[in-house]
Structure formats: C-alpha cells, structure tokens
Design a protein around this nucleic acid. Structure first.
Lengths: 202, 202
DNA sequence: GTCTATATGTAGATAGAC
DNA sequence: GTCTATCTACATATAGAC
C-alpha cells in the first residue's frame, strides 16, 4: 500500500451510491448509474453488496449516522440553554452544508420504512432528554417563557432543516443561485438562533 | 345523470393515483397499485392517461394547485401584518391536514424536476410580493424588528411544513400516535403564529 | 368504456471467463 | 477482483375482443 492510499473500490461504491441514492431515492436509483458514477461495472456492485437493498442499507446506515450522530451530542456540551441552542443550530447546519441532499433523503426513507430508522434515531435519546430537561429548568428559573420543550425542539429542527428540504423551491421563488443559497445558509447560522431566542426569552 | 352523481372513473383514478404517488413517489409507484386502488383495470389507466408520466402530471398539477393555490391568497386578505401571519399559518396547516403527504411529495417532485413546478409556484407571486411589502412597511413603522422579509417568510413556512415532512421521525421520537400527532398540529395552529410574532415584535 | 392477453423494454441479479 | 454476456422478473404500454 502507498502512503497516499487510493480509495478502495468499496469506498468508491459507497460514495457513488450515496450520491445516486440521495438524489434519486431508493426506488428511483439505478444500479447502472451507481456503477457508472463509481467507474466500475454493474456486476461488481453485486460482488461487494449482494443486492440493491443491501447497498442501500450500507449507504443509509452511514448517512443517518452522520446526520444524527454528533448533532445531538452538541446539545449536551453546554450547561446553559442559549449557548446550547446556538451549538445545536451550528452543528446541524454544518452537517447539512456538507451533504445538502441528506435531509430529504432521510425524510423519504423514514416515510418508506419507519422501523428501519429506529436504532439510529434512538442513538441521540439521552442527549435529547438532557436538552429537554435543560429547557424545563430554564423555564422554572424564569429565564424563558412557558413553552413545551418538545415543541421548541421541533421548531429548532424546522428552522434548520427546511431550507435544505425546500431548496429547489427557494431557489426558484427568490431567484437565487447556488452561491446565493450558500450565503443564505451562512446567514441563518446566526439569525436562526437569534430568532429562536428572541421568541422564548422571558 | 343522477342527482347524486357518482365519481367518474377519471376522478377515481386521480384520487387513487394521488394516494399512491404521494406515498411512493413517481419512481416507486406502480400502475397496478393505482388500478387496484381505483378498483379498475390497469389498461384503463392508459385509456384515460396515455402514460404513467401523464398520469403523474395530472396528479401533480392538481396537488400543487391545492397546495399553493389559496395559501398565498390568505396573505393578502389582511391589511396588517400579525393577522396576515395568523391567516397564513392557519391556511397552510389546514391544507396539509387535509393531505399530510403532499409536502413531502412536492418537495421530492421539485427536486426531481425543478422546472416543472415553475408555473404553479409563480401563481402566488403577487400575493408573496404583497406580503413582503407588508413586512417592509411594518418594519418602517417600527412595529417589528429589523428582519429580512424573505427570511421571515422562510421561517414561517419552515415552522408550518416541517412537522409533516418529519412526521414519521416525530412519531418515533416522541412516541406518539396518529391522534396525538393531530393534536400537536392543532396546538401549533395557535402556537406557531405566537412563536413568530414574539420573535419579530419590536 | 372496460376488459384479457400480450408485446416490449429495462432493471436486478447471476454465470463464468480472465 | 473485475469484466462480458445472459437470465429472470416485472412494469409500462399496446392490441384487440366485448
């Protein structure tokens, strides 16, 4: 092996599959397209991953871990609420900037097979519970208004994820380019936490 | 024709197709399933709509009109900002309660074929422009803080639409039933406008 | 208008050479 | 491990009887 190691075939397949599956979805994706994207033959896909379903699961396992993994963790690294909100929004948006197709991909996959996700979603369970307690406590201390912690969390996720889900529509409505979209997202990294905190501050 | 007219075959096909397409997406939908759902034969689908693509477009045309049609109009029926926000949120949510799969369906279709949507999105253009002016004016009068009107609109849509996009995840995370989800949405009809207005009020 | 039967194309998967 | 060639299954679409 060289010091500068080339990507293994398996890695190239996973990368190509992630691109194709997240753009086209499970049903719309074609094995041929994945093969082309990876620069290999269709038959080789079946050599590494027995079936399309298994390839898909390989990709999805990877993707959903990346999506849900460190995001929730960002919540509990803070000891007070407002910094935690800022950290969560930043972490979430960073992940989606890396991989803008992921949110829609995951939304679809959850819709297609709700059970298949359970283990990955549950991974952030404690972090989420920790955050909900933090909200509860801030409320008891009178720092924030009376709001259901779970509702706050839904609103936070909504404000983070929606631009990526609705990207084609936003681009059309506001007539913006990819570059302008990127700038909008960067702006939201600051404005979204402000929007949230203004709304809940007592 | 009877006074109590039965649904025509074409209407039953469109209804069935809407159900199947919005659950499975264009690629995942099967003509056989649409036929079964409509209680007719597969060949008859091709009699009414020459191809799957045309059937899909028939459904999408209908769906996106329902989604975008009267929602934007709700914006300009008010002469001050806060009631307009309340009206928009209510109208939007009512539409989605009627047809909870529509948001994800439309998000996917926009992703698949961004151009295909243009005409339907553009339909609400004047209403949107009118709303953005309303925000601008409220800002000049000092009623609200300094916020980009377009950003406000994105946030409004995010808070409305996200629970429907992420429904399976929310149901899993919060361990709620269909009935509890429905209650959550009803609650949000009030809480979302409050959340927004608290955030922008000067 | 509605059906049965069939043609046509394509995608997933395998066999087997190298 | 990687390829070419092929099998099999199935989905869209059509032909034609009723």
């Amino acid at each position: 092996m060289n010091i500068v190691e080339e990507a293994t075939t398996e890695q190239r397949i996973l990368l190509a599959a992630r691109k194709v599956f997240s753009q086209k979805g499970m049903a719309g994706a074609r094995m041929q397209e994945v093969a082309d994207e990876a620069g290999i033959n269709k038959a080789l896909l079946h050599y590494y991953f027995r079936s399309k379903q298994q390839l898909f699961e390989g990709v999805f396992k990877d993707s959903s871990q990346r999506q849900f993994g460190c995001i929730w963790d960002s919540l509990k690294q803070c000891d007070s609420l407002f910094p935690a909100i800022e950290a969560f929004v930043s972490a979430y948006m960073d992940k989606m900037i890396e991989d803008p197709m992921l949110p829609l991909f995951i939304a679809n996959e959850m819709n297609r097979d709700p059970e298949g996700l359970a283990e990955f979603i549950d991974r952030g369970k404690e972090s989420r519970a920790c955050f909900l307690r933090m909200v509860e406590e801030a409320r008891e201390r009178g720092e924030i208004i009376d709001i259901d912690p779970r509702e706050l969390l839904v609103n936070m996720m909504a404000l983070c994820v929606h631009p990526f889900i609705a990207r084609p529509m936003l681009k059309h409505i506001h007539g913006i380019t990819d570059e302008a979209f990127r700038r909008m997202i960067q702006k939201r990294r600051k404005s979204v936490p402000e929007f949230i905190i203004r709304s809940i501050r007592a």
